[in-house]
Amino acid sequence: MSTPAHVRIELQSNPLYLCGVRDMVSSVARRLGLGEPAAAQIALALDEALCNVIRHGYDRRKDQPIVVELTPIGPAERAEGLRVVIEDRGRQVEPEAIKGRDLADIRPGGLGVHIIREVMDSVVYERLPEVGMRLTMEKRAGIGDRGLGPGGDRGGCGGRGAASPGSAA
């Protein structure tokens, strides 16, 4: 039984919105106490994944739906990590076919999947039943990582103190 998402965002597949989504996920990760390095890595992985959805899933069309869901691993007040789920309605591919290029082959492109797998602890691609793909990624706070860096003291989000993040789903 999967836990309901705590944060859910729907956006169109327009690259202009990616900066806002990565800022948001980075803020949430810091607020959950994951620390600046983990927050930055989660934002990078999400950004790369959304780029891939727009480019490969939607052939660069800018008006297609993408859903991003965030769920803390463990209680939000003592999160051990963050689960990020991305769903689209784009072209389906076999999950086994999604792999980064050989890094010894120096050429533009093909790095996004490699970066996602490198910075996240768990990465699972699935075909949705009829159309589209789901990517589930998890990042756990590293030992000594929690609370490090700006915003890692749960005092972020405009200094609203230690109020529990509410459910935006």
Binding site: L44, E48, C51, I106, P108, G109, I115
Partner: peptide, 14 residues
């Protein structure tokens, strides 16, 4: 910078 920026620099290098 993410991979589109990196790819641009790889193109520039080539």
């Amino acid at each position: 910078m993410n991979t589109p920026g990196v790819a641009t620099l790889v193109e520039a290098l080539q």
